[in-house]
Amino acid sequence: MAVPLRADDCDSMVAEHEYTIETLKKISELLSSNPEYYTAWNYRRQVLQYQFSQAEGSDDDAAAHSITELIMNDLHFLIPLLRSFPKCYWIWNYRLWLLDEARRLLPLPEAQQIWQQELALVGKMLTLDSRNFHGWGYRRFVVETLKELGTAEEARSMTQKEFEYAKKMIGANLSNFSAWHYRTKLIQSLLDEQSASDDDRRRMLDDELSLIHQAFIDPYDQSLWFYHQNLMCVFDPSMAERTMAPNLSSSDRLQYIRNEIEEIQEMLDGAEDCKYIYQALIECTLLASKVEGSLSSEDRDQILGWLSELKKLDPLRRERWLDFEKTL
């Protein structure tokens, strides 16, 4: 068999504190053939930290220059690895560590520039795999940091740009729940950062409701229904506090919910076999009763009707529906 490379060389070089460019090269070879070899990423950090401390000995400009170069070179080294192993935790972690070092060691404009480039990179990664879990988490982290590094004004425009980005990703693929999830979070930040009034919040809510109604052209897509469920939390007295419009009056909430029920009921036409529609009808009706304080017998009968459809359409979760039936 052909083992491409043993780790022994690297082990001993690091053990001997040989934190040289030569050692770094060996570590690169090792990691290129096996990026899961996590101890070698730690070796790499040790070598880099040593190189940084050496650079710090010179005057400020020269130090910033050499540290920038070291970091940029290393960031470049990681690109092909991320392409080949997009799900490898260790590469993403190492990259974040490197970026944090940039933030710690470099003057603000240089650090900002490096982090800004990172946003472009993660954008590319997410174009290749639009649901990559690491990719989305990483993007959130980069954006958070850029906001911390910038002024309040820059932070606000950053959120706005991210909101546009999430919109673009949803437009490209409506069933991308990662993008819908991001949208939920961004709306909150956007409104908070703008110190939005209750009226502003309500306008945003209206926009979101009409957006999701348009998206429901395909009612069989689960992602859309989870986003809809997120929106419905606005009308839930026990969850509203965590949503974009926390201060609606009970009568407003009720009005919204009744509208939703009507909208969703219309969707049944031609999609009578879509279980998500019945689930949403039941959830909304229960929500209405929660706001009203009791479940009317009329609503109860409606729910029982939808439930009997669900039991037929959704045999996998039959026991769940039976449990629910008992609570009515």
């Binding site: 989305w136 999830h181 991001y182 989870f226 469920q229 939390c233 969850m239 965590r242």
Partner: peptide, 16 residues
């Protein structure tokens, strides 16, 4: 914890 009742890897992350 997210609004869907499930949890993510860190605060703000999608449920998994």
């Amino acid at each position: 914890e997210n609004l869907d009742g499930a949890y993510g890897i860190r605060p703000g992350a999608e449920s998994h």
